[in-house]
Design a protein around this nucleic acid. Sequence first.
DNA 1: CGGGATTTATTGGTAGTACCATTCCCCTCA
DNA 2: TGAGGGGAATGGTACTACCAATAAATCCCG
Lengths: 253, 253
Amino acid sequence: MPIAKRRKEDVTVKLIAVFKQLIAEGTLEPGGRLPAERELAESFGVSRSSLRQALKVLEIMGVISQRVGDGTYLNKGADAILREPMEFLILLDGISAHELMEARLLVEPELAARAALRASEEDIAEIHKELRAMEAAKDDHAKFVAHDLLFHQAVFHAAGNRVTSLMFSVVHKSLDKLITMTSQVVEPEHTLTLHRRIYQAIRKRDQDESRRRMTEHLVDARDLLSRAAEKQSHFQMAARIQTLKKKEPRPSR
Amino acid sequence: MPIAKRRKEDVTVKLIAVFKQLIAEGTLEPGGRLPAERELAESFGVSRSSLRQALKVLEIMGVISQRVGDGTYLNKGADAILREPMEFLILLDGISAHELMEARLLVEPELAARAALRASEEDIAEIHKELRAMEAAKDDHAKFVAHDLLFHQAVFHAAGNRVTSLMFSVVHKSLDKLITMTSQVVEPEHTLTLHRRIYQAIRKRDQDESRRRMTEHLVDARDLLSRAAEKQSHFQMAARIQTLKKKEPRPSR
DNA sequence: CGGGATTTATTGGTAGTACCATTCCCCTCA
DNA sequence: TGAGGGGAATGGTACTACCAATAAATCCCG
């Protein structure tokens, strides 16, 4: 009798629960290697097919990494873990870039204030580093935006809370493309000025000003993005994949 | 030749990308029914095994629902979509309850202020409803905590940002058990008083007070939780599952 | 003719097998 | 001592067979 036998849960769901516990209790350690699929399947008393489904879920979520000919490993940190789910969340709930920016606007100012309060010298140096990287990449939009977001990540890190940091790294990634498009019609120096003010405020350990400067920047960015999004909406209609044929509510039979 | 043939991506990964696009372009609509697995596999030119892996990923993430004998359906809203990933995130990065509470403390006060600003009459009624539900459940810890969290969810909803709302619903769920334990050593009336103040402040449309009252409550809760967590740490060593045997860095062969 | 019970086809769930390409380890040989 | 080759192990995919749950179609009886 495999695993347990609660309710009517999938074997897959049970397996995932088992892995969760194994990680929680330390039997599996980040970076560690898991037994081969064939062995695992046998010791769990399930087929390899079922086991693979569970492993695939974990891999897509970024919990583990699988390499042919090598093995399966438990990932260490997992920044990417929320990425896929987040994308679907945005798709399914129809969350717009505007709403994502609103979320940033709600959270990031407070985090900037917190950063001003508890940033270490290294944190501040890191923020400064990203600022200079932005200056150096004025002409490369993609690079410029990448360092823009890293700047914000550095502020998150300085604020010292990984939960918000991880959550909003996903939000940032979701906005990446759109921001890159926007950046092409905005003077880099404009963006830089706003970032410099934030950096200076944090450096001065001025919580109120940090909060205000971050708000100032994000309000500006939000409005720019909204306008860009309007223009882009015309291009929404992409090439279709016709592979999928039916989608009726259950064909008669 | 199945799907496409970029790089060395899994068939599973490709399939997920395809589904993502099908959802994005509207070929698949929330609530709609997907073709049977056998049909889908054929039209995509992949085996059912591979297709099922992709579908399983989507199901666990909460994107779709599968029912034997019935079919596969695309979910509408997806509150639960971040749940599993978030749990692993907490596990892998070793995030503590304290850090989760810190995250709440960073975000929820600002959201309370926003709620005071833009809550509709219905929103305020909903918050009040949860407050009364808490009062009615003074003696049932689990129920009391459930409505406690729903109270906060209602505040989120009133603030009007789904992104933060969805993200923190996961944080709340992660904290649920621990809060329930804590609530057993705290006078319910104490918690109620703090919640009433928040409600009154939002009702008065007083942003500053809403922010302060929410901070007051969460600071209190955080400290209670930290103390409870200390006591609990002794019980961390749970029964182990010995099914998994090996975890060495690649057995010699 | 109507409605409940039954049959039947469909669907997702699981197991198992076979084969492939990749990767790594170890052994051999120069 | 070093380089190369062979073999074993690993994850990836496909295919088959069967099970259990579901819902639609059918039958049967009042």
